[in-house]
Amino acid sequence: MTSLLPLALGFAMSCVGLGILFCTLRLLIGPSAQDRVLALDTLWMCCMLLCLLLGMRFGSMVYFEVALLIALLGFASTVALAKFLMRGEIIE
């Protein structure tokens, strides 16, 4: 059972990496602004998950702080962008 955990970690990392690719595609092709904001939010979330997985891969606790910071910044930036989408175009 020595190789089970590295295999599962690699699988999860490639899944999350593919997810990041999908989000980036949606960010690039997203027809409306709200699509792009949603894709960016999901991108933040996937990056946080990838950080956690890297922390497990390298057995280091530092990645946890990175993941926490990514979660905080992602929330703040998405709220700001959504507020801008709602109010930003009122002054036309």
Partner: peptide, 24 residues
Amino acid sequence: ISLPVSLLLVLGGCIALIGCLGLL
């Protein structure tokens, strides 16, 4: 301990991928 961790990792990776696939 390694079996449930691996199962959770595989499930979590699959679910995260499905969510992004839905977005796309």
